[in-house]
Design a protein around this nucleic acid. Structure first.
Lengths: 339, 339
DNA sequence: GTTAATTTCGAAAACGTTTTCGATGTAAAA
DNA sequence: TTTTACATCGAAAACGTTTTCGAAATTAAC
């Protein structure tokens, strides 16, 4: 009934617990004969080491924590998938927590993970997070921390990101190159660095190409969803009839905008061209298909874990490691919403 | 540098480890004075109990495992969200694994979770799973198991499901009630019970209402994605010009079908009415908006954890508990793809 | 004043593993 | 023979907590 222990194996074999333990782990100071004996008996008794005891002894649990703002999200769920896949490869399990874009929750969850003594933490910070002491706490407690996508530059840890500014620049430039003369921007909320950077990339592209930056052409999406895309597209064609291109932060918003424009009889890309951001799987399916920036979520997840793994390894060897920032390539995917 | 232990508190206070431990847990046989002393010192030293030691001693980790076929999936990600939310409320953390619809992986992951000694397991089984001995193993090892959505009837554990057959019947009947005379069905793969039940509900509704069941009107989706919806819709209008209604397993497939029909100039719902399944968030956004069956993923997640929690509690009290099957209500959401 | 009841404490075992270090015994080298 | 080397084992400490049980100290009862 009760699980088999080293002690039981030792007793039935008439040897010590020490030798059993060492035999199972192929220590050199155990004879081949006893190794066989031990391993065979362990096999037939279906011995499984008590994970709790191993954790206590080795001071690690081969488990990491992951905090993301939202689970039901096409980008983040791809990241999660990448992290889980890579972690499993290396024998690690992943505990997932959701911050709901709330600083308070995020803080609580960091503490929760610390109290559970996860070996490391992966996090994409909430929009509401401006204070980072909880992250510092984690690092001071000697648990490696890696941030991805939504990062805090000020925190001295490894990070994995994309160049939002450059990507937005590329997207906007593509609109310009395809002949757009007046380009609007549906941006994300004011707080997170991502939407700031994407806005800045848009603005720079505009100014670099002899166009006038007009703040009335910038709409702020708070929820970054379909309905906002629809709403702002309707407002845009009403207020600025001469706009012929929109760079939109988020494919979901862009799809909403396309939907509204289709209903209004505005032809895409002839009258208005659209570029989205993130390459959602539906973006290639709608009509017209959406030109967008591919944001490699799965890859980012894998890379994020790899970075954390490096730190875990280094910590085990008691080596200091310098935090590094990895930048993933984004690519412009040209489809039918631009010329 | 090193974390504070009970021992340190005991030594600085000149009392025993026992008393410190009991003081912190408000045992009645510790005086109020020493309780204050201990708690204050623990506070100032920022004492955090060593989770590994607690786990070993109490034989539980307040962690459960979750296995789903796919993380990047609108229904499952909602379930995950519900599970995490409910688990956090009760002080449990969730380790997530993805089976990729593979029996082999699923089996491996069950064993992984068992070796990590999670307190319980939540699972939605893979399409490829026909043998259930790995699940039996879990239950024999005395770790509570609850299945949700994609279940195996034969396994004697608690389950949380919807009545797929009834829901499909309702969906099909709605098509009939709104005047459809010849109704097709895009079903899911042959294996999983869900798509079988939904097919059976469709068939029964057809036969109950004096219509002829025609197997050539049933298309089998293997991948259950947008492209299949598009493809089968195209085939359908080509081969069966008189079909005026389709019940489609999966909103994603349905959206694909709508897209194809729109392109072909087939008007929805005038020429063909469509009912989907699961109420994806995009289904209300497309044109025409999609009539569908709401499948309450978030609620299912919460309920699934609640069931597991009950079993965990019962196990702690060494009570036997009878497995129960909870059925969640589904509702027909009428939109513009049906009359 | 003794006995009984009550309050307060701590020694010690237990959870199951890992690892250090010393103790054997045996074979090879001198 | 003695010395050296090597192979094989096990005792014991350690990881940090929880909990049982008995002992001591204090108070109440008589």
């Amino acid at each position: 009934m009760k699980p088999v222990t080293l002690k039981q194996i030792a007793e039935t074999l008439g040897i010590s617990i020490t030798t059993v333990s060492k035999a199972l782990k192929d220590y050199p100071d155990v004879s081949k004969k006893t190794k066989r004996l031990v391993k065979d008996l362990a096999e037939t008794l279906n011995y499984k080491p008590n994970a709790f005891a191993v954790n206590l002894r080795t001071r690690e649990s081969k488990t990491i924590g992951l905090i993301i703002p939202e689970v039901v999200h096409h980008f983040f769920s791809n990241v999660v998938k990448g992290i889980i896949a890579q972690a499993e490869k290396k024998g690690y399990l992943v505990i997932i927590l959701q911050s709901n874009e709330s600083y308070e929750l995020e803080k609580k969850q960091i503490n929760l993970l610390l109290s559970k003594q996860v070996d490391g933490i992966l996090i994409s910070i909430a929009n509401g997070t401006a204070d980072f002491s909880h992250l510092q706490t984690a690092m001071e407690n000697d648990v490696p921390l890696v941030m991805f996508d939504k990062i805090a530059k000020i925190v001295n840890c490894s990070k994995i990101i994309i160049d939002d500014r450059k990507a937005a620049y590329t997207a906007t430039k593509h609109l310009i190159d395809s002949g757009c003369k007046k380009i609007a921007h549906f941006r994300g909320p004011l707080m997170p660095q991502n939407s700031i950077d994407r806005f800045l990339g848009y603005k720079k592209a505009i100014e670099d190409h002899g166009m006038l930056y007009d703040s009335s052409l910038v709409y702020i999406c708070e929820k970054v969803n379909f309905d906002e895309g629809k709403l702002f597209a309707q407002r845009l064609v009403k207020n600025h009839k001469d706009v012929d291109g929109i760079f939109i932060n988020g494919d979901l918003v862009a799809v909403g905008a396309i939907s509204a424009l289709n209903e209004l009889g505005v032809s895409i890309p002839d009258q208005i061209s659209i570029v989205g951001f993130s390459n959602w799987f539906m973006s290639s399916a709608i009509t017209p298909s959406l030109t967008t920036i591919d944001q490699p979520g799965y890859k980012m997840g894998k890379k994020a874990f790899k970075l954390l793994y490096k730190e875990l390894k280094a910590k085990k060897r008691k080596q200091e490691i310098l935090p590094q920032t990895v930048e993933l390539e984004t690519t412009l995917i040209k489809r039918n919403s631009t010329k």
